Amino acid sequence: MGSLSGSSPSHSVVEKALAAQLKSGDWEIDGRLLTIGEKIASGSCGDLYHGAYLGTNVAVKVLKSEHLNEALPVEFAQEVMILSKVRHRNVVRFIGACAKLSHLCIVTEYMPGGSLYDYLHRLHNVLELPLLLKFAIDVCNGMEYLHQNDIIHRDLKTANLLMDTENVVKVADFGVARFQSQGGKMTAETGTYRWMAPEVLNHRPYNQKADVFSFAIVLWELTTAKIPYEKKSPLQAALGVINEGLRPDLPNNVNPRISDLMQRCWEAEPNNRPSFTEIRLELEGILHKVQDEQVS
């Protein structure tokens, strides 16, 4: 294990820019007390590590040094600002951030269960209906809370849905999240192609209903334990969604109410998609019916 320390010439520029973006609050932690262990995952802008802070297991997102440019402080500040304002059972818990080190980093609770993506695709788990519904409801609870707090996630996918030891699923990775009322034009093609809504792919204005489309793909994935459009490249999948109205093939033998909900969530017209409150209530109704049938 090593601790984060040191400084670099490029970092001094970043630090000055950060000062303009963020007022240091109780989110700032002492990097000397943070230790970094094994790498858990790697992304385009940063790597995720298992670490320790004040004797607690944590996850540490370290932003890559080659990305220490003028845009990075804005993105870092945005992520810290959002994480510092949210607290919910189904949203990964923010512990703090370091803004005065050679590597900017964000520290969150460690999720030992890993991602839903790994649970489905690397461990090859096929979900029984009650567990599938429980996972989907967890995601809805987290997303409903975010949307009620003016946050659009913009990269909802199974790789960003993490599990704790109790199999509670939490929404994670707010690297491209933003406040919907922030103003300014939303960036097109934000997120991950296989889960991305057509309006985002198509460079059209979009809102929180783009997250609902992504949820439909997550729900399909939970139902099938398959990767969406697995025989196509991400770009081929994106072009299919834009040009042909492509959607994943509806699974056989799925609960018809889930199939119907999935299709309403991936409607081409965003206004026709339900809200996460409506989705949660419907999923809870399906779960109660399934549980009643198991008892009788």
Rank of each mutant, 00 (worst) to 15 (best):
D26L: 07
W27N: 05
E28I: 13
I29L: 11
I29P: 00
I29Y: 02
I29C: 00
D30R: 03
D30I: 09
D30F: 07
G31P: 00
R32G: 11
R32Y: 13
L34Y: 06
L34C: 06
T35R: 10
T35D: 09
I36W: 04
I36R: 09
G37K: 03
E38Q: 13
K39L: 15
K39R: 15
A41K: 02
G43D: 10
C45H: 05
C45P: 00
G46Q: 00
G46R: 00
D47P: 04
A52V: 14
Y53W: 15
Y53A: 01
Y53F: 15
Y53P: 04
T56K: 15
N57C: 15
V58N: 00
V58Y: 03
V58G: 02
K61D: 11
S65T: 15
H67R: 12
L68Q: 11
E70F: 15
A71K: 11
A71C: 10
A71S: 12
L72N: 01
E75T: 07
F76W: 01
F76M: 02
Q78R: 14
Q78D: 13
Q78N: 15
V80H: 02
M81C: 14
M81F: 14
I82G: 07
L83K: 06
K85T: 14
V86G: 03
R87W: 07
H88I: 05
H88L: 08
R89F: 12
R89H: 13
N90R: 06
N90T: 06
V91W: 03
V92L: 07
V92M: 05
V92P: 00
V92D: 04
R93G: 05
G96A: 07
G96M: 05
G96K: 04
A97F: 10
C98E: 06
C98G: 11
A99W: 13
L101H: 11
S102C: 12
S102L: 11
L104K: 00
L104S: 05
C105P: 06
C105Q: 04
V107N: 01
T108M: 10
T108W: 05
E109L: 04
M111S: 08
P112K: 10
G113R: 00
G113A: 04
G114W: 08
G114P: 08
G114Y: 07
L116G: 01
Y117I: 05
D118T: 10
Y119W: 09
H121V: 03
H121A: 02
H121T: 04
R122P: 02
L123E: 13
L123I: 06
L123M: 07
H124E: 08
